[in-house]
């Protein structure tokens, strides 16, 4: 059981407070969506949770150990991270990018052995990329690229996964496909924290919604409890209608508030 716990985290960069007194947790088997307007501090919160940024106060811990104190390899084995920016320096093959997911286990990019090769194979299959394994990255479409990066994060086979906008700029079909991958990861016992801008999709897939505004976490709970007309107006400044369809919440955005 691996648990990521954020307690009263504050992050200041250059005099500006980007995250203020934020607390939440991510445990096994849950898919948590981190939502909020642009500039709310979501990416900063993820980086601080990973120990890539030092907090001004508060702690981020994995099973009680501050992430800042973990060695890069220990941290990488506990949490897979899919950043928002996904530059690619060289036109390598799909399977080489996914192989990099095994870095923390000592794997080399183009010469995989044993357990690492098996993990890459599983990730390729999960993300439906087996046919593209030998293709060069610069020949892929946006949807295919998104799946490759997901596969790279899944190949780590870490208990936790933090993904920053994995479905941004994807068409609806690929958005659903990537969210289904995240859901599947949680279903198998992983804990996923995903930044999502499509609130309807977040509400449909996530076990919990963590709402951020101006650097603060202002609500944290299941969609059925936290997704309300008032909160959409307060956080996103839009007028929305929330209805229920069986167990899930359905969101319709009507216009600017």
């Amino acid at each position: 059981m691996t648990e990521l716990k954020l307690e009263n985290l504050s992050v200041c960069v250059g005099g500006a407070t980007l995250v203020k007194d934020a607390s939440t947790r991510l445990g096994a088997g849950e898919l948590v969506a981190l939502i909020g307007p642009n500039g709310a501090g979501k990416t900063t919160l993820l980086k601080c949770a990973l120990g890539l940024l030092a907090p001004a106060s508060g702690t981020a811990t994995i099973n009680g150990v501050p992430t800042l104190n973990l060695s890069p390899v220990e941290r990488a084995r506990a949490v897979a991270y899919l950043p928002q920016m996904r530059p690619l320096a060289w036109p390598v093959r799909v399977k080489d990018v996914i192989a990099l997911g095994r870095f923390a286990y000592g794997a080399s990019m183009t010469n995989l052995k044993g357990a690492d090769a098996a993990a890459v194979k599983r990730a390729l299959a999960q993300c439906d990329l087996a046919d593209l394994a030998e293709r060069r990255m610069d020949t892929l479409s946006g949807g295919e690229l998104a799946r490759v990066h997901c596969a790279r994060a899944l190949a780590v086979e870490a208990p936790l996964l933090l993904a920053d906008e994995p479905i941004a700029s994807l068409d609806p079909r690929h958005q659903l496909a990537v969210m289904a991958l995240m859901r599947g990861f949680a279903h198998k016992g992983g804990g996923a924290l995903v930044v999502v801008h499509d609130i309807a999709i977040a509400a449909r897939f996530a076990d919990r919604l963590v709402w951020m505004k101006d650097g603060e976490i202002i609500a944290d709970g299941p969609p059925a409890q936290t997704l309300t007309r008032e909160r959409m107006r307060h956080v996103f400044e839009v007028d929305a209608t929330v209805s229920t369809d069986g167990a899930s919440s359905v969101l319709t955005i009507n216009g600017l508030a």
Binding site: P83, A89, S108
Partner: peptide
């Protein structure tokens, strides 16, 4: 090799930058 994906992703993969 890991830096192929940029510094942020490489850091996430366990690279001591």
């Amino acid at each position: 090799s890991a830096l192929t994906l940029g510094e942020e992703a490489a850091h996430g993969l366990g690279v001591n930058l």
